[in-house]
Simulated scan of single mutants.
Amino acid sequence: MSDEHAPGLGARHHRLLAALPVAGTRVARLAEVSGLTKQALAQTLQPLLDGGYVEVMPDPDDRRARLVRRTATGHRVEAALRAALGRREEELAERVGADRWAVAASVLRELWRDTVEDRSPSS
C-alpha cells in the first residue's frame, strides 16, 4: 500500500489495523493475537494514535481495561489496504492461474488461522 493512504505507516501498522475488529478489542487481547509484547504493541500503536487511525478508550464493561478501535480514518485506510490486497491477489491469480491461486490462498489462510489460534490464550 502506498504512502498516499497512510503516510509513514509500515507493514506492521497495516497488519495491526487489519487485525482490529470493527468494535475494537482490549489492548491485552490485541497483544496476545498479534504476538507482540505489551511494550512492542505500545510502540506500534503510537504512530496509529498520532495519525488518528486508532483510538484507545476505557472498556465500558471493565473500566480497568482499555479498548483499541479504528477511527473513521482508520476504517478508510483499512478498506484501502484490503482493496490493494484484493488487486494484488487478482494479479497473482492471473499470473499462476485461478485454480493454483485458490489452493495457495487457502493454504495461506489456514496457516494464518493456525498461527492466530496458537497465540490465543487457552481457557
Rank of each mutant, 00 (worst) to 15 (best):
E55V: 15
R82C: 12
G51Y: 08
V77P: 07
V96E: 11
A72T: 14
R63S: 14
A84G: 13
Q46T: 06
L48D: 00
D61S: 11
A19P: 02
A65S: 14
A65T: 03
R119M: 08
A28Q: 09
L81R: 13
R76P: 08
E89S: 14
L48Q: 02
L111F: 03
P58C: 08
D62K: 08
D99N: 07
S122A: 14
W112P: 00
K38T: 08
E55L: 14
V54S: 00
L111Y: 01
G10M: 10
D3Y: 08
A80D: 14
G35D: 02
M1E: 14
L45Q: 00
A104V: 11
E90K: 10
P47R: 01
V22G: 09
R109I: 00
A28T: 09
H14L: 15
L30E: 00
R100W: 06
A104S: 09
A19F: 04
L49Y: 02
P121C: 09
R88M: 14
A11C: 08
V33H: 05
R29I: 04
R76T: 11
E117M: 10
E90A: 15
A80C: 05
L17T: 06
R76M: 12
V56Q: 09
V68R: 05
V96W: 10
G51K: 05
H5A: 13
L108G: 07
R63I: 15
D99G: 07
L81H: 15
A40W: 03
L111E: 03
V54H: 05
H13N: 11
R87S: 11
S34C: 01
A65I: 06
V33W: 03
E32F: 03
A65E: 15
R113N: 04
G97L: 04
A80V: 08
G10H: 13
P7F: 08
R88G: 14
G52R: 05
V77C: 02
S106P: 00
V68T: 04
S106W: 07
A19K: 03
R64Q: 14
R12Q: 10
P7Q: 06
R70V: 04
V116S: 03
R100M: 05
L30A: 01
E78L: 09
G97W: 03
L67N: 06
P60H: 03
D61G: 12
